[in-house]
C-alpha cells in the first residue's frame, strides 16, 4: 500500500469514530471538541485530494469561527450534562434504524456505479491562483450574491439577538 492509501484509512477511522462520538457524547462541550477533531481529519482529506486552498479555508472558517461560536453559546448557557433530558429508548432505536436504512439504501444505490480510480500525483486545480481565476471569471454573480446573503444574515442575527 502506498502512503496516501495508508493515510486515507487512518484518517477515515478517526473521522468516523469522532463523528459517532459527537452524537453519543452526553456533555455538549465534548461534542464540540470531537466535532473539531472531525473537521481536522476532513482537512487532512482535502490535502490528500490536492485542495490546499480549501483545506486552509476549512480550518479558518470551521475550527476558527464556527466552533468558537458554538463554544461561546454553550458556555453562555451553562448547560451541565445531567440537565439535558433524553429521548426515550424506543424513539432512539427508531432513529438509529431510520439512519441505518438510509445508509443501506445509499450504499445499495451506489454499489454498482461505474466509477474509476482517482488520478495519482498532484494537480494544480486546488491552488489559489487557479481557483481565483475560476471564481472571478465564471462565478462572479454568485460571489456577489453570497456577500448580500452574509450581510442579511449578520443583520438578522443582530435583530433576533437584540433584547426587546
Amino acid at each position: 500500500m502506498s502512503l496516501p492509501t495508508i493515510l486515507f484509512w487512518i484518517l477515515a477511522v478517526i473521522s468516523i469514530l469522532s463523528a459517532i462520538g459527537v452524537v453519543v457524547a452526553k456533555n455538549p462541550v465534548h461534542s464540540v471538541l470531537l466535532l473539531i477533531v472531525t473537521f481536522f481529519t476532513i482537512t487532512g482529506f482535502y490535502i490528500l485530494l490536492n485542495a490546499q486552498f480549501l483545506a486552509v479555508v476549512h480550518i479558518i472558517v470551521y475550527a476558527g469561527a464556527i466552533m468558537v461560536l458554538f463554544l461561546f453559546v454553550i458556555m453562555l448557557m451553562n448547560l451541565n450534562a445531567s440537565g439535558e433530558p433524553q429521548k426515550n429508548n424506543l424513539v432512539k432505536f427508531a432513529g438509529v434504524v431510520a439512519g441505518g436504512l438510509l445508509l443501506i439504501v445509499l450504499v445499495a444505490a451506489l454499489k454498482k456505479a461505474d466509477t474509476g480510480m482517482l488520478i495519482q500525483g498532484s494537480t494544480n486545480i486546488g491552488l489559489i491562483q487557479n481557483l481565483g481565476k475560476v471564481l472571478f471569471k465564471d462565478f462572479v454573480l454568485p460571489f456577489e450574491v453570497s456577500s448580500i446573503l452574509f450581510l442579511s444574515a449578520m443583520i438578522g442575527a443582530i435583530v433576533i439577538g437584540k433584547k426587546d
Binding site: 477515515a12 468516523i16 463523528a19 432513529g95
Partner: peptide, 20 residues
C-alpha cells in the same frame, strides 16, 4: 466515507434533543 458521515449526522438529528 461520505455516506457514513452523512448517515451519522442524520442519526444525530433524529435521536438528540439538545438544539445545539
Amino acid at each position: 466515507l461520505s455516506i457514513a458521515l452523512f448517515s451519522i449526522g442524520v442519526i444525530g438529528v433524529l435521536i438528540r434533543r439538545n438544539a445545539i
